[in-house]
Design a protein around this nucleic acid. Sequence first.
DNA 1: CAATCCACGTTGTACTATACAACTACTTCA
DNA 2: TGAAGTAGTTGTATAGTACAACGTGGATTG
Lengths: 144, 144
Amino acid sequence: MTDRDDSVETIQQEMTAFARRARATAARMHPELSLVSYTLLAHLDDQQGCRATDLAAHYLLDKSTVSRQIAALEKLGFVERRVDPDDHRVQVLHPTEEGAQVLANVTASRRQAFHERLADWDEADLDRFAAYLVRYNAAQERLG
Amino acid sequence: MTDRDDSVETIQQEMTAFARRARATAARMHPELSLVSYTLLAHLDDQQGCRATDLAAHYLLDKSTVSRQIAALEKLGFVERRVDPDDHRVQVLHPTEEGAQVLANVTASRRQAFHERLADWDEADLDRFAAYLVRYNAAQERLG
DNA sequence: CAATCCACGTTGTACTATACAACTACTTCA
DNA sequence: TGAAGTAGTTGTATAGTACAACGTGGATTG
């Protein structure tokens, strides 16, 4: 086993451990908005509205999954649909005001949790860690 | 927004993106052993056997969840139970030979996938990234 | 322009992971 | 020895997910 292998092994283990915990942690912290709902709503907010198909492509989810997630968010009053006048098949999705508000709350609370976890990190480490994660995820997207 | 905030924001986004994808990716790569089954079986292998309660405590899962996961692994022939002679409530769980073999295969294949993703990283970066992940996860465990 | 094909979304169905509560069986301890 | 605690299972419910079948509405092409 080389040092390189050791590092890769650790990265694998830690990423796996994190992935296992993430949903449950998110659910405990934000019962009002699951991790998936949160990311979908955040994407709508970020993109100033988009189609269900775009969400499915972006998050590698089946369109039926997105359809149901959006239906749930709509039922909660967090998302509204606007039929595209140029193509009646298309529904452009937007956060409602209430949805934007809830999103902002959850975002703030998540941000605070991350700040707490990272409180004793110095800025150089934070910066490098952030860059590594970006690089890792980019590679994962590239390689599937 | 300070640089520090920017870094934390990026870390949050990237960890979230990773968490969202992890299960589906694992399931695609290893239909024979889900991420959860994999980690449970790996823990049994690593610990040379342990109790269901230990697994539940270690992975913050409900004992009923572990019970069902183990039942599934047993049905697949990957895990066997040995009743503790000193305490008839306790079942010590062990991977079977076949379970150990499947685990080894999945581990090898996961390891290879990680090596591919990280192929163009130099060793210093790998080492730092591994250390950051360990540090991050430790903080998360500490703070819930 | 009609027939065909394609894109968008919904619904039926099924499965996995999960939690909580109620239960059984066993152990420990006062 | 009886009460309390521990290990594990089972009943029930929920969330998230995929795949397949479908309906509807645009786009293309002979």
